[in-house]
Each structure stands twice: as structure tokens, then as C-alpha cells.
């Protein structure tokens, strides 16, 4: 699964060891017991090395993993987790925003509505998907699909992966702020369960605009914050090269968010990161979604909405003087 053309700095020792094992395998072809033992020992070493490197990642390294060009995107999760997905387009007002993908599907035997931000992998699809940055019509399309889900009683599964809402002329003209604000409010009272999964990048209002729900799951190596590390560095340190420092200061990693009570649980990624095993990553996330969805479906609508309100009502840290 590892793509040799895209190797992050801290992944290099792992990739080099993998290459060495591969070479030895080719050379040995099962002939020498000596070599087989050597290979087995190297594989154990690889396993240990991978675990060591990935357990001690800095927040900035996790940001890089969240942005890894081979990372599974919404459509990959749809492929691995659902059957019969029918993509539905457009906001019925202005356009079809390709940075967000929506439609009904079967998830483990259950009808659901899928809404997810989508990035592209090569130059052409990156542009087509606008790098996963939604316009107001994208938020309105997402809301239309949520209302559709509410009307026909389908739970909503949301996948978040965006570097931010698109900062452009047209986006402002068409009310980016209003679109996000309205979604947040409407999601707070949508009468069906909403399960949010942060699968890559969760940047600010661009993420929150489809980010209000009953349970918030977060892939181990994804990030979620009020601003991107680069944006924060540019404002506070006046130097976007200070992004690694900003990533630390913002505490944007999954472990931080669990500690701050913003997310409900962390979904562990396959050894070496989700980009090395899409199917494995989807399997773990799918199991987590299935579990929470099962318990949410057991609640009455009133309880569901009350719990959702209280969840966000209680966020924040302050004291009385």
C-alpha cells in the first residue's frame, strides 16, 4: 500500500527497512533457512520500529499524516463501508459543490445518508474537488441532504476532511458565514441520529459547518482545530513556517481533543497510518460507527436532541472569579 513516491520524513526508516526485507525475500526465494530467519528477525524489527515511530509522533507529524496524499478519503470509506451508494447532487439553489459528496447508501444492512468532504489525489481531481474546500452551496447541499434524511428517517453519517471553507470572492457574495451558521443551528435539531467521523483534516468553521452531531469519532492521525497550523502561525507569529509550533500550541491532535471533551472517541489506525491500509482503516472506523449508531437508534427523538444540545452546551473551560 505504501507509495514509494510519497514518503514522509519520519516514515523513511520504515520504508527503507521494508525495502531491505523485500530485496532479501527476492534473493532468498525460500532456499536458505539462514536467510528466512534473518528475514523474520527483520520483520520483527520492522514491527517494533513502526510501533515506536508511530507512538511518539509529534502533533505536526500527525498533521502531515492527516494530509498524506495516499490517505483514505470519503469516497474510499464509502467504497469499503457501504453498498449501493447513490450520489445525489446540488443545493437546488445555485450549484453542485464537488468538495462535498452526498447520498443514501446501505451501511451494514441499514439505510443511511452519507455526507462527506472529498479531496482529489492528482492535480486534475484536486482542482475538481477544490481541495476539499466547500462553498456556501456545498453547505446548503449538505443541509438539503440532512433534511431529506430527516424526512425519511435515515441516520446521517458524516465524514470530515477539509483544510477549511473556501475563502473566495464568490463564497463571500453567496454568504459563507450564513451557510455555516444555518447548518450548525439546523444540525442541532435534526430529528435523526448524526454520527460525525473526522477522517483527515478538520479546519475551523469549514469542518463545523457539517460537524454538529450526537457522537464525534476521530481517526487517530487526523486533526481538528479552530484554525490551521499555518493560519495560526501567520497571525500569531507572523510566519507560516512556524506551523509546527502552532500545531503544538493549538493541541489539535486526537488525544488532545479527547482530553478536552470535544470528541467521544479515537479510532485507532492501522500500524503506520491509515494511508498504508485503507481497508483496515475503514474496517475499524466502520465497527466504531456501527456500535454508536446502534445505541443512538435506541434513544427516543426527544432524548437524542436533548443529549445533543447538552453535549455542545457543556463545551468550554472557565471559572467563577
Amino acid at each position: 500500500m505504501a507509495n514509494p513516491t510519497v514518503v514522509l520524513e519520519f516514515e523513511k526508516p520504515i520504508v527503507e527497512l521494508e525495502k531491505k526485507i523485500l530485496e532479501m525475500r527476492e534473493f532468498a526465494q525460500g532456499e536458505s533457512i539462514e536467510l528466512t530467519r534473518e528475514i523474520e528477525s527483520l520483520e520483527r524489527k520492522l514491527d517494533k520500529l513502526t510501533r515506536e515511530i508511530y507512538s511518539g509522533l509529534s502533533r505536526w507529524q500527525r498533521v502531515q499524516l492527516a494530509r498524506h496524499p495516499r490517505r483514505p478519503y470519503t469516497l474510499d470509506y464509502i467504497e469499503h463501508l457501504t453498498e449501493g451508494f447513490v450520489e445525489l447532487h446540488g443545493d437546488r439553489g445555485f450549484a453542485d459543490d464537488k468538495a462535498v459528496v452526498c447520498g443514501p447508501a446501505f451501511f451494514r444492512g441499514r439505510k443511511v445518508m452519507i455526507i462527506g468532504q472529498q479531496k482529489g489525489r492528482d492535480t486534475k481531481t484536486k482542482l475538481y474537488r477544490n481541495f476539499g474546500m466547500m462553498h456556501p452551496e456545498g453547505y446548503r447541499k449538505a443541509l438539503r441532504m440532512m433534511k431529506l434524511a430527516e424526512k425519511f428517517d435515515l441516520p446521517v453519517l458524516i465524514f470530515i476532511d477539509t483544510p477549511g471553507a473556501f475563502p473566495g470572492l464568490g463564497a463571500e457574495e453567496r454568504g459563507q458565514a450564513e451557510a455555516i451558521a444555518k447548518n450548525i443551528k439546523e444540525m442541532a435539531r435534526l430529528r435523526v441520529p448524526i454520527v460525525i467521523s473526522i477522517i483527515g483534516e478538520g479546519a475551523s468553521g469549514g469542518a463545523l459547518g457539517i460537524g454538529v452531531g450526537d457522537v464525534i469519532l476521530m481517526m487517530e492521525n487526523s486533526w481538528y482545530s479552530v484554525i490551521s497550523p499555518e493560519g495560526c502561525a501567520a497571525i500569531l507569529w507572523r510566519d507560516s513556517a512556524k506551523a509546527p509550533d502552532a500545531a503544538e500550541a493549538l493541541r489539535l491532535a486526537s488525544g488532545d481533543l479527547l482530553q478536552l471533551n470535544v470528541i467521544d472517541s479515537i479510532v485507532p489506525e492501522p500500524s503506520g497510518g491509515a494511508h498504508r491500509d485503507h481497508k483496515g482503516a475503514a474496517e475499524t472506523l466502520g465497527a466504531a460507527i456501527e456500535e454508536v449508531l446502534g445505541s443512538l437508534l435506541g434513544l427516543s427523538t426527544e432524548d437524542l436532541l436533548q443529549r445533543r444540545l447538552e453535549k455542545f452546551r457543556n463545551m468550554g473551560v472557565f471559572y467563577h472569579a
Binding site: A188, G205, S225, D256, L260, M315
Partner: peptide, 13 residues
Amino acid sequence: GILSLMQMAKTSA
């Protein structure tokens, strides 16, 4: 950080 973002959700809800 993220807690300031969540105030948007708190107030809107």
C-alpha cells in the same frame, strides 16, 4: 483552540 470553535455550536444550538 478547538474550544473556541465549539462556542459557535453551543450558541447556535
